[in-house]
Design a protein around this nucleic acid. Sequence first.
DNA 1: GATGACCTGTGA
DNA 2: TCACAGGTCATC
Length: 259
Amino acid sequence: MPEILEVEAARAVLEARALEREIASVHAPDTWFLKRGTTPESVTHALLGNEFVAARRRGKSMFVDTANGPVLGLHLGMSGRVIVDDVEAGDPLIYASNQRIEAWHRFGVRFVDGGSFMLRDPRRLGAVELDPDESRLGPDALTLTYKQLDHALDARTAPVKAVLMDQARVAGLGNLLVDESLWRAGVDPVHLPVDLDTDARKNLHRAIRSTVRVLGRRGGSHTGDMPRGPDAVCPRDGTPLQRRTVGGRTTYSCPAHQH
DNA sequence: GATGACCTGTGA
DNA sequence: TCACAGGTCATC
């Protein structure tokens, strides 16, 4: 269930292990997984005999460049994992469904040297696409500047949480990272951007930066300080956390210190 | 902008 | 059996 931190870990595994290896065969058994006109035939044609030369990322989307030109777009959806030669990014213990079930390998390639890259996704909400449109994403959350955040909030009438999760405004933040960031910033998820003054926005920017940096170092989006669950209590002031739906997602926040 | 849909696994 | 899951998309 990847947000930007997990996707970056997956990208790093691809970069470290999957580049400059000739592709011997393409595994694309699930046409549902191939989006926007990409077919098993077209992706096989694009990759066979080719090799990956770079693994890029913007927000939660990955773009793998190939020597012959085509770009392989990858998205992990809610449950996707990248596996190269049986090495996968992140902490496997977090996931109960961590088994090597062949049917969960929705896409992949086998290299001439005998190794492989596989995208495992039990829920099939991930995606593979040739030459994806890379322009529809906002600025990347890992390098988000104050100015970019300020602009992202501009003229929005949705709750600040919904804006932060809108990938066209800021790319990479998901449900957990946004809840943690807002908790750290002391901002109520339903607060409207128009009501956030410069101080509040600077504070929010600092909170987003510290959230992605600290949680990245700890090992993932689930390692935040704000607990989730029916009996969750704010570690800052001991207040029982509030559970709501905001922006269509389950949202936890502290009614005492998030305004 | 909010809602439901997509798909499938896990745990209560 | 049900509610829930770290994402995105079409639809009203």
